[in-house]
């Protein structure tokens, strides 16, 4: 470089006029965005509060212990939610018991073990697409596969058929969530383990899974929360709406909370609409309990890291 050149570069006056910082306008844009974000949050919260309030106003009056411990009835003042609540709990336990090992296992296989072949890529694309299939389609599949084809095992329109149908519905979500959680684990941890002479399974089990577990758990519980509110696929497989008894086993006929609520809302009498609102409160309480459990478990596992 020419010496003269560099000297003139140093000597040249600072050309502050080439920068237009324009702070007022930048700060005001800041404020506009902050306000929009607040507004968006406000709208979402307001809608939610409005929804909750109307339901509480409609339903709290008829929500009492008799309502929770009674079977459905033709008379709204005697009708209760017990069979549906028990059905929902049965179904959710089975769904969780099947979804967790199958979904998380598939996620682990695809993310950690599968080689990148055309077959795995085909499976991946299909799983992502399955997550977007309308739930009624799963109902039809469940009807054909579990209710009809596998009737000797499932017992027809049973708890097991319903649970397996819902499992199919949420498996793609669980698999995708598991893979996301695994992918978020830094590769340096895997390398550290393998470089110490660990097998791939030892690395996954001892180091990757514990880190990914809170994320996996959140995904599973969110998926279960979706399953708990599903109505259409269970109607499609023909879950009953009038069940004056508790499920006794996996092959028992059953109903679930959303079906019961749907059934009551469909009736002309206002009294039934009120107990439908009470049913919604019960459903939301179950959901809230599940999410609380999820947060509790997640914090416990995060602390143990």
């Amino acid at each position: 470089m020419d010496v003269n050149d560099s000297r003139s570069a140093v000597a040249s006056p600072r050309q502050t006029d080439r920068f237009r910082q324009n702070l007022p306008s930048r700060y005001s844009r800041d404020r506009v965005f902050q306000a929009s974000a607040w507004l968006a949050t406000g709208i979402a919260v307001a809608v939610l509060v409005w929804l909750l309030l109307t339901i509480l106003i409609d339903g709290v009056g008829t929500l009492n212990w008799t309502f929770i411990t009674s079977y459905p009835s033709r008379k709204p003042e005697q009708a209760g939610i017990l069979a549906a609540l028990a059905g929902t709990l049965w179904v959710m336990v089975v769904v969780a018991a099947v979804t967790f090992p199958v979904g998380v296992g598939a996620g682990i296989y695809l993310e950690e073990f599968a080689s990148d072949s055309w077959l795995t890529r085909l499976i991946e694309i299909n799983i992502s697409n399955l997550a977007g299939v309308p739930s009624i389609i799963y109902g039809l599949l469940g009807l054909a596969a579990f209710v009809r084809l596998m009737e000797p095992v499932t017992g027809g329109r049973s708890v097991l058929s319903g649970a397996l149908t819902l499992t199919l519905l949420i498996l793609p979500v669980v698999i995708v969530a598991t893979r996301e959680a695994l992918r978020a684990v830094s590769n340096s941890i895997r390398l550290a383990g393998l470089a110490l002479g660990a097998t791939q399974w030892q690395v996954v089990w001892n180091h990757v899974l514990p880190i990914a577990f809170p994320g996996i758990l959140t995904g599973v519980i969110l998926a279960l929360s979706r399953a708990i509110g599903e109505t259409a696929p269970l109607i499609a497989i023909g879950a009953l709406t009038f069940i004056p008894f508790l499920p006794e086993g996996l092959q028992s006929p059953f109903t679930v909370l959303p079906i019961q609520i749907y059934n009551w809302i469909g009736r002309p009498q206002d009294e039934f609409h009120a107990i439908a609102a009470s049913g919604i409160i019960v459903l939301m309480a179950v959901l809230l309990l599940m999410n609380t459990l999820a947060i509790y478990l997640r914090n416990r596992f995060q602390k143990s890291l």
Partner: peptide, 30 residues
Amino acid sequence: LRRRVGMVFQKPNPFPKSIYENIAFGARIN
């Protein structure tokens, strides 16, 4: 082979576990 040829990486990458466990892991699996 990797038990006999160890490796230390550019960015320190301890396991997110106790100091004790960090060392015990390799010994245990081997």
